[in-house]
Amino acid sequence: MSRLLLSSLLASSLLCTLPASAVSGCFLYVDSNGQTLSAEGDCTTRLPPASTFKIPLALMGYDSGFLVDEKLPALPYKPSYDGWLPAWRETTTPTRWAAHSVVWFSQQLTEWLGWERFQQYVNRFDYGNRNIDGNPGKHDGLTQAWLSTSLLISPEEQARFLSKMLSGKLPVSAQTLQYTANIFKVSEIDGWQIHGKTGMGYPKKQDGNLNRDQQIGWFVGWASKPGKQLIFVHTVVQKPGKQFASLKAKEEVLAALPARLASY
């Protein structure tokens, strides 16, 4: 796997490890009331959320005041931060954070919140298994919980979370919801605004190392226009190839959406 190819992937999604039990992908459509419209594959197995966790992180950030709008705060890169990708070694705004999956920006947000408030948000959002302990014995959940460690969520739970968010059932303001939607907008289709986030990872082997013979990717989000909303959650399970699982998941959703939206 070339560094250039991996860098292009990580610009839109973070690598994380996933349980070996995740053996089948899921394609799920849900309406804004939480009613399942269609479901294919394994939509019940819990997986680490990877970069898709930036959606709830954005809600936490705007609700708490750490995030101001789409352009503020503009946090400068510091040598002590993870700057493995060139895109991470620049001043980062909320929009840039969402687009490039800047790890250290997420971690600055959660460290600012502190463990207690972070846990409170995860509980209030009823997000997956709610476990932010992180790696066993390392007490690193504040910065690592969603990155292949303790926090897990199924496709069905992702859809449920998004349904609560879109229907105003989460304890955050309308302005928080709007800013979050703004930074995760990815395209437009026939008058529908498409918002979403990718995430990708590998299962772990028995020895704890990544199993790079299998990739599992996410693309989760929603399509909206006045009076209508459609939630989608897609996971792809595949062997490594020319296209990464997360990017394939995103492309498959965007390819399927025009026909789905036309009949919705």
Score class of each variant (00 low, 15 high):
L4Y: 13
S7H: 12
S7C: 07
L9Q: 08
L9W: 00
S12K: 08
L14K: 07
L18K: 14
A22I: 12
S24H: 11
V30S: 13
D31W: 01
T36N: 09
T36V: 15
A39R: 12
E40L: 04
C43T: 01
C43N: 00
T44W: 02
T44Y: 07
T45C: 02
R46K: 15
L47K: 07
P48H: 01
P48Q: 05
A50Q: 14
S51T: 01
T52Q: 13
P56A: 06
A58V: 00
G61T: 06
Y62P: 10
F66I: 03
L67R: 09
V68G: 01
D69Y: 04
P73W: 10
L75D: 04
P76L: 10
P79D: 14
S80R: 14
Y81R: 05
G83N: 13
W88Q: 11
R89S: 09
T95N: 14
T95Q: 15
H100S: 10
S101M: 11
S101P: 04
W104K: 10
F105A: 05
T110L: 15
W112S: 15
L113W: 08
G114E: 08
W115G: 02
R117E: 14
Q120H: 02
N123E: 11
F125Q: 05
G128I: 08
D133I: 07
D133P: 00
G137F: 07
H139E: 10
G141S: 14
Q144E: 11
W146Q: 02
L147W: 00
T149R: 12
S150M: 04
I153D: 06
S154V: 10
E157I: 03
A159F: 10
A159I: 02
L162H: 07
S163L: 03
S167C: 01
G168A: 01
L170A: 04
A174C: 00
A174Y: 10
Q175R: 13
Q178G: 05
Q178R: 09
Y179D: 06
T180Q: 08
V186Y: 01
Q193P: 07
H195R: 07
H195C: 10
K197T: 08
M200G: 15
M200V: 15
M200Q: 15
G201A: 14
Y202M: 05
D207K: 03
G208S: 12
L210G: 07
L210W: 10
R212P: 02
I216A: 13
G227C: 12
I231V: 07
I231E: 12
F232H: 05
F232W: 07
V233N: 09
T235M: 00
T235W: 03
P240D: 05
G241P: 00
F244H: 04
A245T: 03
S246V: 03
S246C: 09
S246D: 12
K248L: 14
K248G: 04
A249K: 04
V253C: 03
A255I: 01
